[in-house]
Design a protein around this nucleic acid. Structure first.
Lengths: 340, 340
DNA sequence: TTGAAAGCGTTACCAA
DNA sequence: TTGGTAACGCTTTCAA
């Protein structure tokens, strides 16, 4: 008897009612004090009593109860295909999250790996976030967007290669990246271009679009373009290098620096000179690209800042019925080093 | 008038009451059907009507309301210092998340960047998660643990270099890593060891411990150990390489592969041979280490699997009063290539 | 087999 | 300046 009561006391989480009881005031007063409500004036001694009581009990407000009552939350949900991402993505995420926190949002990342589009959207909707910001790893369908909106999500924003109906869309034109790579190689006098296509499923969408960009830029110059699949492993690179001469390419754009380094190493190992026999350019400007010899040329891709995106999120949440905006938000420039 | 009513209808999110109304049953029935309650028997036609109605309205349950009522949630909170992480961390996270989903938990990642320990813990506590799993990027104090427990968090688990009072602790002994590196270098006949210490703040704790490990392993053999600070930039590496001979080292363990590659490149550029003049070993077994010449020797660090951690989380949630467990969960082995 | 009602922790309105 | 009260959406016990 005394045991259960002691146990339940220990187990029980302090609520605002407990704080009120301890401070000798009503729950309403506690709420006013703890939220610094400006509408009502509470005497300073009362305020102190309430704060002291909250402190003493280790009271922490219950976010779910609050947003249930309020009818809306300040949660921004970032769905991620994997639960994590890598630079330069990560710096951007940090920025975004920082900026959103400054705007008083709670940022929460939700790994939706292994969920199909519909069940993922349902899972997000259950959390009733104020906004969902899809960073391009996850694909958002018009259907998911409708589902989310129906569930009270005030803003759906996508950052990716294409606009999604009903959502604000920040567009990153992947073709532009391929085009820049091609322009650079053409400028250097190359006319038989290869494009390394990752065999891994992740970048599939991107690499196809970048290839299109290369094609478009190359055609007017009468250059040929050849797609060359490659898995991100040493073995695969060796095999590719063994038959490289037969491909008859004089330059190659390799999706990103990782594939570029892999390929370059393999080509050198079969005696090819770079950029003499084949020029190589990657993308993302990784630090390690500067450590190889020749130093790897690359494409630097600048996307919109986290602050900018945070601003858009906030505006969209405040005006949920505003027409979806579309912006182009990517800039690509060539960083020429020694491999081209 | 008609305008506002239409608007509010459109705005309003369907609740279980709406489903009940449309299906012509009570809310209780809706809840039973949608949760497949086995305790009560509902007729098949009714079940169908309810499901149809839910479908038609696009009803999605409100997670906050549900867990408020239930008195507990199935949320597992993963605080992260940055909002993201990199391999091999990321694969582990994906595994963990996958396994937890299989156990019917909702995994949510919370970026606590720029929050001090106490406010971070408060922020987590507001969400009333069932468990908090700290992955070593964030530091958890006994005080935060108490705060979390007081707020109803059933399990607090840390994966890191040291145990935290009150929390289940999965220990990764960073000294072991340094020790393995040293043992390998000693075995190869080296006696004047350098240890690259990153100047970046991130790895500070880890690198100190690894250095200790090196020292402990080296002393019995009468080898000398020297800590050598290095920032992760080309310039810094060049400067270090310029004065390398004066250091009189015949081998170096470079924290991780990134620093190792950076250093190796710089040493080669000033005409030193590797491993002839100086042997170099890194850690993490990055793919790119295999692309350099000589190929970089490294330490492969295997941590516990995500499944294992998920199991521990589940057990801990089910038995919140169980004594905190402590496990050693890391294994390190040398991958010798050509740089040592 | 179904329905009514209570209650989870909050906050906002209205009275006192 | 403060307190009572209702309501947010959901589940579950008890009654019919």
């Amino acid at each position: 008897m005394s045991h259960t009561s002691r146990e339940s006391r220990e187990r029980s989480v302090p609520t605002s009612a407990d704080v009120a009881r301890l401070a000798g005031v009503s729950r309403a007063t506690v709420s006013y004090v703890l939220n610094n409500a400006s509408a009502v004036r509470i005497s300073e001694p009362t305020r102190r009593r309430v704060r002291r009581a909250a402190e003493e009990l280790g009271y922490v407000p219950h976010a779910a109860a609050r947003s249930l009552r309020a009818g809306h939350s300040r949660m921004v949900l970032l769905p991620t295909a994997h639960v994590s991402a890598c630079p330069p993505h990560s710096r951007f995420l940090d920025e975004l999250q920082w900026a959103l926190r400054g705007l008083d949002y709670t940022v929460v990342q939700y790994g939706s790996m292994g969920l199909d589009g519909d069940s993922a959207a349902r899972a997000w909707a259950e959390l009733r976030p104020a906004a969902v910001v899809s960073l391009g790893e996850t694909v958002l369908t018009p259907h998911s967007v409708r589902l989310l909106k129906r569930s009270g999500v005030r803003a759906v924003i996508t950052l990716g290669t294409r606009a999604v109906e009903g959502a604000h869309s920040l567009l990153m034109d992947q073709r532009q990246i391929g085009a820049r790579a091609a322009e650079h190689l053409l400028e250097r006098g190359h006319r038989r271009l290869g494009v390394i296509m990752p065999e891994e499923p992740g970048p599939g969408l991107f690499s196809e679009l970048r290839l299109t960009g290369v094609r478009r830029a190359a055609e007017p110059h009468g250059a040929t373009v050849r797609a060359v699949p490659l898995a991100c492993e040493e073995r695969a690179a060796e095999a590719l290098a063994a038959g490289w001469r037969e491909l008859g390419l004089d330059a190659v754009y390799a999706y990103n620096d990782e594939y570029a380094m892999l390929l370059m190493r393999a080509l050198q190992d079969v005696g090819l000179s770079i950029p003499g026999d084949t020029a190589v350019i990657g993308a993302d400007d990784l630090l390690l690209g500067r450590l190889l010899r020749p130093r790897l040329s690359t494409l630097r891709i600048d996307v919109v800042t986290g602050q900018y995106l945070a601003g858009l999120v906030d505006r969209a949440v405040r005006d949920p019925d505003g027409a979806p905006e579309r912006h182009d938000v990517m800039a690509t420039r060539v960083v020429r080093r020694e491999s081209t």
